[in-house]
Write a protein that binds this DNA or RNA. Structure first.
Length: 562
DNA sequence: AATAGATGGCCCC
DNA sequence: TGGGGCCCCTCTAT
């Protein structure tokens, strides 16, 4: 894949004419809103003006400098050139036409007209050439793939959902994990290091532990042999092993034993996974190194191993569910690597999967472990159908908007662990769509075997981007982390069990009305059913999306089948 | 109500 | 190979 090229640097900002007679700049005849800014600079301010732009001086020579009027012409905020403007117009975002498409990264069109956005399948791009099938592939397909039924899970079928929301965190949610045995217990980690526990069947059962980590909780894994215990990795450079009933934990590993010596040396732990068969905990840092920990003996094993480009962040680690010797890693060096855990040395990977940009996540498929699903910041989800086949090229690339703004948690396409065909994945979408005058960011269900967008989940009260999503291992339930909120979604029919909590709006369940599946907008309805979300969000939403004030305060959430 | 600031990747030198 | 400047459909606090 050609790496998407960023366009070159643009000329510096035009500060306009230093002319106090005519600030009118002729050709702005088109629109009602003349966005000309006039700024009068007098003597003392001129000093500052000089600092920024030396050319301002010299005009007002000699005596008292005349008032300087700076006029800013209507200019594109992206490329700083005149004649067009980028940004929101109502709930539609207009791209700068000089930039490559924000979705597929190709030049010549904008997101509005991108074929991948218009297409129903939301843009599946086949791999450039078909994987050549080897004998191994045929054996593999006959023995393994034949056992994989082609049944899609039920979750994507209903078009009405119940929803629960809770705001446990004071910073954005960075990780989610369902409890392995207690069906309604969800864990959430945030940017500040706090870990929340929420039993969504008993809305008042919420706990937040604030002193386990001091910054971003990047990963949470249960000790499935003793599932009140939780392993967590954090950007504070530690691995903790915490008793969830008491919140008391053990510090298993600290990769900054010498403390803080500035950001250039501070190690942060991103990827982490547990290898149950081998009694191993694997974690990796932001400088490319892998650490091994013996969970039985509670000791670190050997020295750290460089597994990605030196100095680059290792973002994710995943152990193969069926083959304990296989490890998958991904990182900021644009690669995902497959490793043999028995032979871990720098450059000793079994296979290397190239990506256009940073790889946010790489996962083996949940049952057979034979497929690989990756999410890369080049706005592509990639699927390799067989780890035993040709790994030079992905089997499919799916164009999908998740090239994230730096202030968000990276998007990760997550398998549905219940899907026996190992094809359904969920991932939040970055670019918004205009839903009846409101810009919303859906959560997408994608059939990775075809690239089709199977369903998209929207909710008028979910106005923020939802980069963190997890499907329940057994139930038809989706958990979403969006900004500081945690959402639970499930097919309709839920009984509200706690009227008191509902009244206090600590948790909100809403039962949505049935709508035709093809409709891609939200009905506006009255705010009388008592299920509306705190008004703060709503006001903001109306403001932000430009006073068109379609009353979109409905709390209906729905999955729209395409 | 407007805005700063937190923040990471990437490109250039 | 390291540092500085810039990217620009966020979100929140002031």
């Amino acid at each position: 894949m050609p790496a998407p090229s960023r366009p070159r640097k643009r000329p510096t900002i035009i500060v306009g004419s230093v002319d106090n007679s005519s600030s009118s700049s002729s050709s702005d005849d088109e629109e009602e809103e003349e966005e000309e800014v006039e700024d009068t600079v007098d003597d003392e301010d001129e000093e500052k003006g000089k600092g920024r732009n030396g050319s301002l001086s010299g005009k007002g020579v000699g005596k008292k400098a005349p008032a300087i009027i700076i006029s800013l012409k209507k200019v594109c905020k992206v490329c700083k050139e005149e004649g067009h403007q980028a940004g929101f117009q109502g709930a539609n975002y207009i791209d700068c036409p000089r930039k490559p498409c924000f979705l597929c990264k190709m030049p010549g069109h904008t997101t509005m007209s991108c074929p991948h956005r218009v297409a129903l399948e939301h843009g599946v791009v086949p791999a450039l050439r078909k994987n050549k099938q080897t004998q191994l592939d045929y054996v593999f397909e006959r023995q393994l793939m034949s056992q994989i039924p082609k049944i899609k899970p039920a979750f994507v079928i209903p078009d009405k959902l119940d929803r629960g929301v809770v705001k446990l965190h004071s910073r954005r949610v960075t990780s989610l994990e369902f409890h392995p045995t207690m069906n309604s217990v969800l864990l959430s980690g945030d940017k500040k290091g706090q870990i929340g526990i929420w039993d969504y069947s008993k809305p008042n059962e919420k706990t937040v532990y604030g002193s386990i980590h001091s910054c971003i909780v990047n990963n949470m894994k249960f000790d499935t042999r003793n599932d009140i215990m939780l392993y967590t990795s954090s950007s504070d450079g530690t691995i903790s092993y915490t008793d969830l009933e008491t919140g008391i934990g053990v510090l298993l590993m600290d990769v900054n034993p010498n403390g803080w010596n500035g950001p250039s040396t501070w190690r942060m732990l991103y990827g982490m996974d547990i290898n149950l068969d081998k009694g191993l905990l694997l974690a990796a840092d932001n400088f490319g190194y892998l650490y091994l920990f013996d969970t039985r003996e509670k000791v670190k094993i050997g020295e750290s191993i460089l597994i990605h480009r030196k100095g680059s962040k290792v973002v994710g680690l995943h152990c193969n569910p069926t083959q304990p010797d296989l490890l998958l890693s991904c990182g900021n060096d644009h690669y995902a690597h497959i490793w043999d855990i028995r032979r871990l040395e720098t450059q000793s990977f079994l296979a290397s999967l190239a990506h256009g940009r940073v790889v946010n996540s790489a996962y083996f498929s949940p049952h057979t472990g034979s497929k690989i699903l990756t999410t890369s910041q080049d706005n592509r989800i990639r699927v390799w159908d067989s780890v035993f086949g040709n790994l030079n090229m992905p089997s499919r690339e799916i164009v999908h908007s998740h090239d994230f703004n730096r202030h968000l948690t990276p998007f990760k396409a997550e398998w549905d662990p219940k899907d026996p065909s190992e094809s359904l994945a969920v991932i939040g979408r970055y670019i918004s769509e205009n839903y009846n005058g409101v810009a919303l960011h859906p959560i997408d269900f994608i059939d990775t075997s075809t690239g089709h967008l199977v369903a998209e989940l929207i909710d008028p009260d979910l106005t923020t981007i939802s980069p963190v999503n997890k499907l329940h291992p057994r139930d038809d339930i989706l958990a979403t982390g969006s900004s500081r909120s945690v959402f639970i979604w499930r097919p309709g029919g839920l009984k509200v069990e706690d009227k008191e909590a509902e009244r206090k709006k600590e948790i909100i369940f809403c039962n949505t009305g049935k709508k035709s599946a093809k409709e891609k907008f939200i009905e506006s309805d009255g705010d009388d059913d008592g299920d509306d979300f705190p008004s703060k969000g709503k006001n903001k939403q109306q403001k932000k999306y430009g006073g068109k004030s379609d009353k979109s305060g409905s709390s209906k959430s729905k999955i729209v089948k395409i």
